[in-house]
C-alpha cells in the first residue's frame, strides 16, 4: 500500500465515519434522555434515503403509508389515555401533535407525487416525512413502559426493529436504491482527488456536531434535555416533562439520522433493511463513548469508519467481523475502567 492509497482509504474512512458520527450522536442523545437504546435508529436513516430516491423518480415514497399508520396508532393510544384520565380537554392538542403535524408532510408528498421537485425541496420533504416516525414510535411503544428497566426497554427496541423491518419491506419493497449525487464537484487537494460529496459529508457532520453543542450549552431547552438525562425526578420537580424532552430528543436525533441518510444515499445502495447495519456500526462508536459522552462517541464513530475502510482494503471479507470485533477490547477496557471508578467511590 502506498501513501496515495492510504490517503484515499483514510478519506473514505473519515467520510463513512462522519455518517456514523451523526447516527451515533443520535443514539446517545435518545439513550441519555429516555434510557432507550433505540435499535431501529439506523432504519430512520435508511428510510430517509429510500424516500429521497422515491421522490427523485417521481414516485410516492412508502414513508407516507408508514407515517399514516403510525400517526393513527399513536393518536388512538393517546386518545385512549386521555379518556381514561378524563382529560378530554387536551384532545385537540393531541390530535394536532399526533395526527395533523405528522401527516402534513405526508400529505404534501402525496399530492406532489408525479411532479418534478428541485433537489433541496426533495431533501427537505424526505426529512420532514421521516422526522415523525421515531416520536410516534415513542408514543406508541415506549411511553407506556417509560419507567421500565433499561434491559426491558432494549428488548422492546429490538422487537420494534424487527417489526419496522417488516413494515419497511412492505412499504418500500425489496429493491435497493441510490440517489443522484448532491454535487459533482471534484477537488484536487495536494495531488489527491477529493469528491465534493465527501467534503459535503464532512462539513455536514461537523456543522451538526457544532449545532448540537451550541444547543446543549446555550439554550434552556438543550439544558432541560441534559437535566432530564442527569436526573429525571429532579427534572420533573422543576417542571420539565420527561415526555416532552423525550419527544424533542427523538426529533433531534431523527434529524441527525435523516441528514446522514441523505448524505449516504448517493454513495451506497440502500435497501429497506440497510439501516440495521448502519445503526449497529454507529452503536459501536456510541459504546466507545459509553453511551454518555458525545465527543468520545464522535471519535469512536470516526475510528469505526477508518477501521472499516482499511480492513476493506486488506481483508475485505472480514470487514464487518473486525469492526464488531472492536467491541470486545472496548468493552474489556470499559469494564476495567468502570470497576476502577467503583472502587474509588467505595473508598471515599
Amino acid at each position: 500500500m502506498n501513501g496515495e492509497i492510504a490517503a484515499i482509504l483514510a478519506m473514505d474512512g473519515i467520510a463513512s465515519g462522519a455518517i456514523y458520527v451523526l447516527i451515533g450522536l443520535g443514539l446517545v442523545l435518545i439513550f441519555a434522555v429516555t434510557r432507550v437504546i433505540f435499535v431501529p435508529f439506523g432504519d430512520i436513516a435508511a428510510f430517509t434515503a429510500l424516500s429521497l430516491a422515491s421522490l427523485e423518480t417521481g414516485g410516492r415514497p412508502g414513508t407516507v403509508g408508514l407515517v399514516a399508520v403510525l400517526a393513527i396508532l399513536a393518536t388512538a393510544v393517546e386518545a385512549t389515555a386521555l379518556v381514561r384520565n378524563r382529560a378530554l380537554h387536551r384532545l385537540p392538542r393531541a390530535l394536532l401533535f399526533y395526527l395533523v403535524l405528522p401527516l402534513v408532510p405526508a400529505a404534501a408528498v402525496w399530492f406532489a407525487a408525479g411532479t418534478t421537485l428541485s433537489m433541496p425541496l426533495r431533501i427537505v420533504l424526505s426529512l420532514a416525512l421521516v422526522l415523525p416516525i421515531a416520536p410516534l414510535l415513542d408514543r406508541i411503544v415506549f411511553r407506556p413502559i417509560a419507567d421500565a428497566s433499561v434491559l426491558l426497554l432494549l428488548t422492546v427496541a429490538v422487537a420494534l426493529h424487527f417489526a419496522l423491518s417488516g413494515l419497511g419491506l412492505m412499504f418500500f419493497g425489496p429493491e435497493g436504491v441510490r440517489t443522484k449525487p448532491l454535487t459533482d464537484t471534484v477537488f484536487d487537494v495536494a495531488g489527491l482527488i477529493v469528491n465534493g460529496q465527501t467534503l459535503l459529508i464532512l462539513a455536514a457532520s461537523i456543522a451538526f456536531c457544532g449545532l448540537l453543542f451550541l444547543y446543549f450549552e446555550f439554550t434552556i431547552q438543550g439544558k432541560a434535555l441534559r437535566a432530564t438525562a442527569v436526573n429525571r425526578i429532579g427534572a420533573r420537580l422543576v417542571g420539565i416533562r420527561p415526555t416532552s424532552t423525550g419527544t424533542i430528543a427523538y426529533l433531534l436525533a431523527s434529524l441527525l439520522a435523516g441528514i446522514s441518510g441523505v448524505l449516504i444515499a448517493p454513495v451506497t445502495t440502500i435497501f429497506y433493511d440497510s439501516g440495521f447495519l448502519l445503526g449497529l456500526k454507529a452503536f459501536v462508536g456510541a459504546i466507545i463513548g459509553a453511551m454518555v459522552s458525545y465527543p468520545v462517541t464522535a471519535l469512536g464513530a470516526v475510528m469505526v469508519g477508518l477501521l472499516e475502510s482499511y480492513t476493506s482494503f486488506w481483508l475485505s471479507a472480514y470487514k464487518e467481523v473486525l469492526v464488531f470485533g472492536l467491541l470486545i477490547p472496548v468493552l474489556l477496557w470499559r469494564s476495567l475502567s468502570f470497576s476502577g471508578t467503583e472502587e474509588e467511590e467505595a473508598e471515599e
Binding site: K223, R226, A227, V230, N231, I233
Partner: peptide, 8 residues
C-alpha cells in the same frame, strides 16, 4: 435527596 443536576 435534593435531586440536583450533578453534571450541570
Amino acid at each position: 435527596t435534593r435531586e440536583l443536576f450533578g453534571d450541570l
